[in-house]
């Protein structure tokens, strides 16, 4: 009689748009807002005034909320994003704004997105009502080299990205764009890279980036693709990937794909993960994976010391029931992570 329920149903997906200073976030948002597919989307913007919304498109506005003719809700941040999201949800509940079914947040240029991800996970109200869909990072093809090497936030934005939008590719040289794409791919091999000119993108490119359902369908599979792909032919288990140019540019960052054949109990998996977080949390730039917990497929995602609530899938996406986890980490080898999990399992 009990029905398997998608635990993520009912949570409003949130896309975070981040990017380097001058990478074209404002241009992108201003092109996005009037798009017909943006009905039922709430866009949280730091400063609405900067966007320059065409007044003909505005149907109603007050305080920090502007409603556009296409049904898009444009909301400027008042105190902080946490308060703004709480306020937006409350207004949605009482019917003061359209019942938006998606949120896009534009962060400030220099921001490290990690604290925002932390807010979405740790704020009890927000965690119950919203879920992170993904991080979209805009990278300026002209100035990226300099920014990547000079600002730690820029590197963090790349590491956390689910989708990278490469801007200003019309005024950069093709050879340097190719080299940049290689470098970005080396830092974060899981993120898709798309070239964008003058902010012209489809809203679809910003959505359905993350785990949208615990039912094993096309959407959840696309999120897990990079993990589910059988890479064992290319690399030995527990080894870092070939990092190419990254070794000389960002020698400390390593992507480790680790798999375990034997199922975990939740206690021994979470104990090992807790231990790793307590020892090296700040260096775990990005973790995602599918873990076999007593036979059930459980999806984990984390950034530094912040992990989302683990989500159990309805069933395994394929016959491969191994635990498979990808770590993008600073100065931690795949072997030591693998050993840590093995040791904790042994002790328990």
């Amino acid at each position: 009689m009990s029905v398997f329920r998608n635990q993520l149903a009912g949570k409003i997906p949130v896309t975070i748009v981040t990017g380097f200073l001058g990478s074209g976030k404002t241009t992108l948002i201003s092109k996005l807002l009037p798009h017909p597919q943006m009905n039922r989307v709430a866009v949280v913007i730091n400063e609405v005034g900067e966007i320059g919304i065409d007044h003909d498109l505005v149907t109603m506005s007050s305080e920090n909320v502007t409603l556009l003719a296409n049904g898009c809700i444009c909301c400027s941040v008042r105190t902080d994003i946490q308060e703004t999201l709480r306020d937006l949800f409350a207004r949605r509940q009482v019917g003061e704004v359209f019942d938006f079914d998606r949120v896009i947040i534009e962060t400030t240029g220099l921001a490290d997105p990690a604290p925002l991800l932390q807010t979405l996970t740790s704020d009890t109200l927000l965690e119950a009502r919203f879920r992170l869909d993904g991080v979209v990072t805009l990278v300026d093809a002209v100035n990226a080299y300099h920014q990547l090497n000079e600002t730690p936030e820029a590197l963090q934005q790349i590491t956390l990205a689910d989708q990278i939008l490469l801007t200003k590719t019309d005024i950069a040289e093709e050879a340097s764009i190719l080299e940049l794409e290689q470098e970005l791919n080396a830092i974060n091999p899981d993120a898709g890279i798309t070239r964008v000119i003058n902010g012209q993108i489809e809203p679809d490119q910003l959505i359905n980036l993350g785990l949208g359902s615990t039912k094993v369908d096309l959407r959840s599979l696309s999120f897990l693709n990079s993990i589910l792909e059988n890479r064992s032919g290319d690399e030995a288990e527990g080894e870092e990937r070939y990092l190419g140019n990254l070794i000389k540019k960002h020698p400390n960052i390593k992507t480790a794909s680790i798999s375990f054949k034997e199922p975990f109990t939740w206690q021994n998996f979470s104990s090992a993960l807790d231990l790793l977080i307590s020892l090296r949390g700040p260096d775990l730039l990005r973790v995602k994976g599918i873990v076999n917990v007593e036979g059930k497929p459980m999806v984990i995602q984390g950034v530094q010391h912040i992990f989302h609530n683990p989500v159990t899938l309805e069933k395994w996406p394929s016959d491969n029931h191994d635990s498979r986890i990808v770590f993008i980490a600073r100065n931690i080898s795949a072997k030591s992570i693998s050993n840590l999990f093995a040791t904790v399992r042994e002790i328990q």
């Binding site: 109603m60 506005s61 007050s62 305080e63 909320v65 409603l67 207004r91 009482v94 019917g95 003061e96 704004v97 359209f98 019942d99």
Partner: peptide, 10 residues
């Protein structure tokens, strides 16, 4: 929000 009427009421 006083000058925004409730969409849910429409």
């Amino acid at each position: 929000m006083s000058n925004i009427s409730s969409p849910a009421s429409k």
